[in-house]
Amino acid sequence: MIAKPAQRLTLFLLLAPAILWLGLLIVLPHVEILVLSFSERVAPRVYAFGVGNYLEFFTEPLYWRTFARTAFMSILVTALTLVLAFPIALYIARVAQGRLKAMLLLLCLLPFWVSELVRTLGWMILLRETGVVSYVLRSIGLSSQPVELLYNDGAVILGLVYGGLLFMIVPLANALESLEPAVVEAGYDLGGSRWTVLRRIVIPHAMPGIVAGCIIVFMLTVGNFATPVLLGGKNGLWFTEQIYAQFITRFNWPQGAAFGMLLLLLSSAIVWLGLRLTGQSLGTTLKQA
């Protein structure tokens, strides 16, 4: 079928903002970074094509260990977020009614009205040596001296789970809401225990929502910068910090670009693996998100 020229022009004009946005802000910078990552400095201000930046990653243990640590911690954060968010989403989707439901979702959303930086600083106020939690522990006699709760993996995980919770709850609640109450009742009626009904009916039904939430939370966590830096301090060791250091501190843009590409590869690979393992397709997952 051949469209009339006027129709084609309309279609083109309608698509133009999206194409420009994709092209200028996403595709172009990534192509630039990809090209940059393959250039090596051979002399001051002289660059040549080469894979040195990638080799550097594998030869320097700090880099690939930080990389592996980031991947592992992100998966852990995603799993913890899922476990925490599931009962909340189940409550919002299946128990709460009308105004209560809207209010609960609003409560989840409320923290996101302030910037991530401010939220993280809030955690610092709570967790630092002279902070609220330390003070309370001392005043009820559980500790004799100030307790430092910041600058460890626990604090980083706490901050990241907190930041990811909403993005897990919303797709989960969406998926759970579409489960017909009679199907759950039938599950009990035919002799299923709570656990059987959850395992064989509720979770399989919510699978697209689970996968969608996990992908979003994983992506947000892997690419997070402020939370690991502020709550983890020197012990944060997040891969985004390495990228930041290469671009800003060391001014080694090609190295930073190579790290950026590796991070993109990592998150894509893990998402692909996750989809394969759960037998979900990207299409059904995106519908839930």
Binding site: A182, V183, D189, L190, G191, I201
Partner: peptide
């Protein structure tokens, strides 16, 4: 006696077949 321990089974109005199975 909870629903899952009664010797009674129900055919629901919507049938409520398990679509995931």
């Amino acid at each position: 006696v909870p629903a899952n321990r009664r010797p009674v089974n129900m055919v629901f109005q919507s049938l409520a077949l398990f679509p995931m199975m």
